[in-house]
Simulated assay, not measured.
Amino acid sequence: MNTDQLKQEIIAYSKEIGIDKIGFASADVFGELKERLKRQQDLSYQSGFEKGSIEERTEPERLLPEAQSILSIAIAYPSKMKDAPKGTKEERRGIFARASWGLDYHVVLRDRLEKLAAFIKEKVPEVQNKLMVDTGELSDRAVAERAGIGFSGKNTSIITPEFGSYVYLGELITNIPFVPDEPVNDSCGECAKCIDACPTGAIVQGGQLNAQRCIAFLTQTKDFLPDEFRTKIGNRVYGCDTCQVVCPKNKQVDFHIHPEFEPDNEVAKPKLKPMLRISNREFKETYGHTSGSWRGKKPLQRNALIALGHFKDKTAVEEMIAVMNNDPRPVIRGTAAWALGKVGTEEAYKAIETAMIKEQDDQVIFEMQKGMNFKEELTAK
């Protein structure tokens, strides 16, 4: 088997099926990453969404015993929305991060990788392959960096020379010994814009992220959002793009190559009030195709309530009262009470007081008290 020729054929085929960039890496142990992950674990900086043990995440042979090479792919997504709708005082809007615009990227990249794997198997019938996208054990970013897709920025994103950091990543482990590509020798230099701009200080230092403080992670949690982050998330319903938006390497970067990643503006910048009363069926029909739906509607509804409180949206008071009184989920009832307190109308405060009398859940009562505390703060001023 001529692996050099096969490599060129794979590169050519990857372009045919809509892969914007492909790189080849060795399947050696990711030693530096292993040490970094151990430090992250010791510091409790991990999100908890990670799959597999540290060994599985850094030793490709644990995932494919005959592993020789890893193919890394990148597919670009848009950074700007055409004709983006603007929120009004009567209809406030939230925002989904760019990585959740259009069709769920896991579906798209898995399709591309499966086609790539089938192409290789046609050429080499005895090949062994294992593919993964985001939810697999391997670090997409570590593989992409080794394969020369881009360099790892201070914001912990892979930054490509062509598409900035607005790329989705996936990989294919194989037992074919391809000649690895050279890593990209670029860097952030002295720039620290992402570190300075991070709303919660989640980027501890260049290349080190405390996921527990990252808004992209926090918007996906299902419990009450800690108080210190509620004023920070603004109108973000899912995810956060701040560290990408401020990056000079992303200046003027906006690629609309793949129709499946074009956002439906009403989904990517949804009206907040309708999100409060959306049924499971409606949620699935409206948001089910996006990557932002994977945790269900609860986190997004909680975030929508916080956003309405952030906007002090008086037009939403009646609906938030209904949520506080009738929703069966304590996190949603309690967050509604907190948001009502933030809006701060007399009607809102009276509703909280009335609801507190019959509320049985201690956490919800605690949130109701927080809501009432806003009234005391206003009076004190």
Score class of each variant (00 low, 15 high):
R329I: 03
A336F: 01
G207P: 03
A97P: 05
Q369S: 10
L169N: 00
Y77M: 06
A355Y: 08
K86E: 10
L169S: 02
K51F: 11
K273D: 00
E55L: 10
I120N: 00
Q363Y: 12
E162V: 09
T219W: 03
D20M: 10
I19Q: 05
V253I: 15
T354A: 15
G292N: 04
L113C: 04
F374D: 03
P78Y: 06
G206C: 12
E9L: 00
N373L: 13
Q5E: 07
K273V: 15
A348P: 02
K80Y: 07
V267T: 14
T88E: 06
L33M: 09
L218M: 01
D196R: 14
A84E: 14
F311D: 05
L43R: 13
F255W: 14
V343P: 04
E171W: 03
R333I: 01
G341I: 05
E61T: 13
Q40I: 04
K297A: 10
K271P: 10
S72D: 11
C243K: 01
P199F: 08
R146A: 15
G239Y: 00
P199D: 10
D4E: 08
G207H: 05
I120T: 02
K232Y: 02
K350M: 06
K130Y: 11
N280V: 02
K298D: 12
P299C: 07
M81H: 06
D111R: 11
S14P: 11
P183G: 09
L138S: 00
L308M: 10
F178P: 00
T200R: 10
E346I: 11
L300S: 02
V343L: 06
F178Y: 00
P161I: 11
F255L: 14
E122N: 15
D254F: 03
N250K: 08
A307S: 14
I159K: 00
R329A: 06
E35A: 13
T135N: 07
P263C: 07
K381S: 12
E35G: 13
K269A: 11
Y168W: 14
F217E: 12
I54L: 05
R333D: 10
S44D: 15
G31H: 13
E32K: 15
K232F: 02
A118W: 04
D241R: 03
E61I: 04
D361W: 09
H310D: 15
L64R: 01
H258L: 07
T379P: 00
V364N: 07
L43Y: 13
I11N: 01
A147Y: 04
E182D: 13
E171C: 05
G31P: 02
P65A: 10
P328G: 05
Q244Y: 09
K269S: 09
Q208A: 05
E353N: 12
K89P: 09
V323R: 12
D134C: 04
R112A: 07
T286L: 09
E318R: 12
L276I: 11
K38Y: 01
R329K: 10
A27E: 12
K38G: 01
A216L: 08
S187W: 05
S26H: 12
I176Q: 01
A355R: 05
F366K: 15
H289M: 10
K375Q: 15
N175R: 09
E347D: 14
K273L: 13
G288C: 08
D186V: 01
A192R: 14
F374I: 08
T3G: 00
C198V: 06
